[in-house]
């Protein structure tokens, strides 16, 4: 019994440790004060109003959605293609190749940022949506690869062989069998890619121009200029969006699972 109690206490503490920053910032989104500090004098939605009316914030939200969607699409397509390629046992240095795909996860973002800026400048893509989407895709692809390779590993290869023997060409096998079976992994990968893009600051600092300020980037710069509770409101929006996407994934996964 004391063991059980200790476990419970430890778990609660660990969770508290993880969510404490959120608990600290979220109430401030609803403050009526102009400074980002406790105590809260009275409750108000004025900072949300600010968020949706002030030009800079509104543009940042729209930019985040545009860049997030673009990144999700590009990273998912590339990540699925890479995962399919990595399945091939005949590929040379399969392990090395896989590590290469995961590299952007561990390489310092600053290093990537500098590299991308130089590279994108060479193609004239700095200060453009395409440039930012490409930069975000670089860091988002590893998440898709991890998630999709996991899903593909769970597919019995003989099911695909059976489809072939029943008359399905390789593209039909992919469309009718492989992709539907890997769909939960593809969905998770896509969501992770979107979340990565939403959250990305460092690369954005390097490659985005003033017209591609994302929500995260806008929060970052307004922190420097004036610490207004609009940041807390933006953070609230952020978390709400993330939770919403998470919910959609969980629901769609259980829906897919129920169809099995």
């Amino acid at each position: 019994m004391p063991m059980k109690l200790t476990k419970f206490a430890f778990a609660s503490l660990a969770i508290l440790f993880l969510v404490a920053p959120l608990i600290a910032i979220l109430p401030l989104a609803f403050t009526s004060s102009v400074i980002l500090t406790y105590p809260i004098p009275s409750w108000s939605l004025r900072w949300f109003e600010e968020l949706f009316t002030a030009d800079a914030w509104r543009r940042a939200i729209v930019n985040s959605l545009i860049i997030g969607s673009g990144t999700t699409l590009l990273a998912t397509v590339l990540g699925v293609a890479a995962s399919l390629g990595l399945r091939n046992r005949l590929i040379f240095f399969r392990g090395t190749m896989r590590t290469l795909f995961l590299l952007p996860m561990v390489v310092p973002a600053v290093v990537l940022g500098v590299g991308l800026q130089v590279l994108l400048a060479g193609f004239g893509l700095t200060n453009s949506y395409a440039g930012v989407i490409i930069a975000h895709t670089v860091v988002a692809v590893p998440f898709v690869v991890v998630s999709v390779t996991g899903a593909l590993a769970g597919i019995d290869e003989r099911v695909e062989l059976a489809a072939q023997s029943l008359g399905a060409s390789p593209t039909t096998v992919f469309r009718r069998v492989t992709l539907p079976l890997a769909m939960p992994g593809v969905l998770s990968g896509a969501v992770l890619a979107f979340a990565t893009s939403l959250d990305e600051v460092v690369l954005t600092l390097f490659v985005a121009g003033p017209n591609q300020r994302t929500l995260a980037r806008q929060m970052f710069s307004s922190l420097r200029e004036n610490i207004s509770p609009a940041i807390a409101a933006a953070a609230f929006l952020f978390i709400a969006m993330t939770l919403l996407i998470g919910l959609v994934v969980v629901l769609s996964r259980s829906f897919l699972a129920k169809r099995r």
Partner: peptide, 20 residues
């Protein structure tokens, strides 16, 4: 001739049915 044009029915030990 690729598998899908061979017109042979294959039955596997683990059945290999399409789970979806």
């Amino acid at each position: 001739v690729p598998t899908h044009k061979r017109d042979m029915g294959v039955v596997f030990q683990n059945y290999a049915l399409f789970p979806h």
